[in-house]
Each structure stands twice: as structure tokens, then as C-alpha cells.
């Protein structure tokens, strides 16, 4: 990835405008993947710092059951308690 010529990339970015659903949709999917990782990272960190599921859920604007269901039960989070 590091070897690619930067001008080639900008050219491509310009050629494939985000009005093209092919690019736009794939970009959204990539974004969702990134959000999932960041969420997992932050929840894990909060649990390790002793935050309650309720407090985490409030900040994420979801129900505490939702966060708990998604992240509790992972060995990693339990180890952090």
C-alpha cells in the first residue's frame, strides 16, 4: 500500500466520484467496519476502567442490554475487570 504512487491515487479518487453507487456503497461498508473496530476498542477500554454497562450504553446512545449482549461474554472483557 505504501508503494503506490500518490498522484495515481488522487487521480483515481477524482475519476471515481462518490456519486457512483459502486464506490459510495463500498465506502460506507468500509466505514462501518472501521466504526465497529473503534466501538469494540472503546467499550473494552471503558470496561477495563470499571465503567458499568449502563454508563457505556448511555454514551453510545443505545440500551444497556444492547451493549451487554454485544460485548459481554467475551473472554477479553472479563479479563479486564
Amino acid at each position: 500500500m505504501r508503494e503506490a504512487q500518490p498522484d495515481q491515487v488522487t487521480e483515481l479518487a477524482a475519476a471515481t466520484s462518490s456519486r457512483d453507487p459502486e464506490v459510495g456503497l463500498a465506502a460506507v461498508a468500509a466505514l462501518r467496519g472501521l466504526v465497529d473496530v473503534l466501538e469494540a476498542l472503546q467499550v473494552e477500554n471503558a470496561r477495563a476502567k470499571g465503567w458499568t454497562w449502563k454508563a457505556i450504553a448511555e454514551r453510545l446512545a443505545v440500551s444497556k442490554q444492547a451493549v451487554h449482549q454485544k460485548y459481554a461474554g467475551g473472554r477479553l472483557f472479563r479479563a479486564g475487570k
Binding site: 483515481l12 479518487a13 462518490s18 464506490v23 463500498a26 465506502a27
Partner: peptide, 18 residues
């Protein structure tokens, strides 16, 4: 697939620098 079809370039297209 073409070269734009990777996470870094797709995110760049919405202004995020991975």
C-alpha cells in the same frame, strides 16, 4: 478488482485518512 477497492482508498473518498 480495481485499485480503489481497498479500505484506505474507500475511506479516503469520504474524507477519512485511515
Amino acid at each position: 478488482p480495481g485499485p480503489w477497492r481497498n479500505k484506505a482508498d474507500l475511506l479516503q473518498s469520504v474524507g477519512i485518512d485511515l
